Structures are given as C-alpha cells and as structure tokens.
Amino acid sequence: MVDIDSQIPTSYDPFADIKDSLAPGDKGYVHLRVQQRNGKKCLTTVQGLKEDFGYQKILKDLKKEFCCNGNVVNDKVLGKVIQLQGDHRKNVMIFLVKSKIVDKDRIKIHGF
C-alpha cells in the first residue's frame, strides 16, 4: 500500500517574499502593476518610490509623456501609489530609468 501523504505535493506560495517583509518597499523595489478594470480598460500602478520624491511632479511628467490621466492615491498599507490610465508598465520603467529616479535592477514588473 502507498502512503498518500508522501504523494501530495506541497503548495508553493509565490507571494511568500512579500509576506516576510515588514513594510511595502522596504527592500527598495519599485513595483509596476497592471489591473484590469472593465472591458479593455486597465490601470497601471507604481508603488515603492521613496517618500522624499515629489509624487505630484512625477505624476505630471508621466501624464505629459504618455498622454494619459492619472492620480496619486494614499493607501494605509502601501503608502503613496501612482495610478495611470492604460497599460504603461514598460513605458514607466523606461521613464524612471532614463530620468535616474530608480535603477533598472530595482524595478519589478507584475501583471499579465
């Protein structure tokens, strides 16, 4: 007879590293995510920028560069998050690296 417990694979949690951190952005990463809204509409979020940056200034430059609308949201858990209309993850990454706000190895892109 075969032991069933030894055949069941253990589950892997891909978000385990996020749960281990004490606060969002404590490892210095900037997270670029896309969220599906309704239909073909989507939303790009930028989380993890340092607090000493002028979020409104960065948002103004992003909106002008990508011809989209956006805002800064204050979240209790995540802190300040920049939201942009549309999927601009790669464009935002290039913009942040080119303007020397964040190094390329400190940016993580999430989403589909």
Results as ranks from 00 to 15, higher is better:
3 D>K: 13
4 I>T: 10
5 D>N: 15
5 D>I: 11
6 S>W: 07
7 Q>G: 01
7 Q>A: 11
9 P>I: 12
12 Y>S: 11
15 F>C: 05
15 F>D: 08
16 A>W: 05
26 D>V: 14
28 G>D: 08
28 G>A: 09
28 G>P: 09
30 V>D: 09
32 L>R: 01
33 R>D: 13
33 R>F: 08
37 R>N: 09
41 K>R: 10
41 K>D: 10
41 K>Q: 08
43 L>R: 06
44 T>G: 06
46 V>F: 03
47 Q>D: 02
48 G>V: 00
49 L>T: 02
51 E>Y: 00
52 D>K: 06
55 Y>I: 04
55 Y>L: 01
59 L>D: 00
60 K>R: 12
61 D>W: 05
63 K>C: 13
65 E>S: 14
65 E>Y: 01
69 N>E: 13
72 V>L: 05
75 D>P: 05
75 D>Q: 11
76 K>S: 11
77 V>T: 12
78 L>I: 01
85 Q>Y: 11
86 G>P: 14
86 G>K: 08
87 D>F: 07
90 K>E: 14
92 V>D: 11
93 M>Y: 02
97 V>T: 15
99 S>C: 08
99 S>D: 09
99 S>F: 03
99 S>G: 00
100 K>Q: 15
100 K>W: 05
103 D>S: 13
104 K>W: 03
105 D>P: 04
105 D>R: 12
106 R>V: 03
108 K>S: 07
109 I>W: 06
110 H>W: 15
110 H>Y: 14
112 F>W: 09
